[in-house]
Simulated assay, not measured.
Amino acid sequence: MAIDAQALADSLHIDADSTELATLNDLIVTATELVKDSVAYSQLDNFTPDQLSAVPLFESAVKALATALYYDRTLSNGMPKAVDIMIVHLQGRLRGF
């Protein structure tokens, strides 16, 4: 299942007006691309949203990063440690290490 702005808003207890949902959707798109680029596994570009959802930890990494971006758009403290850990795990899993 692809990550949904409404579901993320619900999990963060954010009032889901159209502006907030649009913001969350943009952050989900950004987080998805950042995670894909950070994993650096070229085959991810060919995955459908359902296939990405089936990759263990992919959605968790995207949700965690989208949440971090929601509260700190510039990631002034860098990538959250939990996201770093999930990306390293994804790199190993996808590359067969």
Rank of each mutant, 00 (worst) to 15 (best):
T67W: 00
G78M: 10
M79K: 12
S38G: 15
A31E: 04
L24R: 13
R93W: 03
F47D: 03
A54P: 01
A9E: 03
Q91F: 08
P49V: 08
L21P: 00
H13N: 13
T23K: 15
A7W: 05
V62L: 01
D84A: 12
A64L: 14
V83G: 05
A66N: 04
D72L: 12
D84Y: 12
T32E: 01
M1K: 12
L12M: 15
M79E: 07
D17S: 07
L12D: 00
H13Q: 13
L27T: 02
S11Q: 15
L44P: 07
I85Q: 14
G78K: 14
D72W: 08
P80N: 01
T32L: 03
Q43K: 14
V62F: 01
A82Q: 14
V62P: 01
A61Q: 06
A22E: 11
M79F: 03
D17K: 12
T32G: 10
L94P: 08
L52R: 15
Y71G: 10
T48S: 15
I87A: 05
A22W: 04
A31G: 02
V55A: 08
A9R: 11
L34M: 15
Q6C: 00
Q43N: 09
M1G: 04
L75S: 02
K81M: 10
E59K: 15
L75V: 06
V39C: 02
A66D: 00
V35P: 00
L21V: 08
L75H: 07
H89M: 11
V55I: 14
V35W: 02
D72T: 13
D45E: 15
G92F: 08
A7V: 13
I87N: 05
P80M: 01
E33F: 06
A16I: 03
V55M: 02
V39Q: 06
V62Y: 05
D10R: 14
A66E: 04
V39E: 05
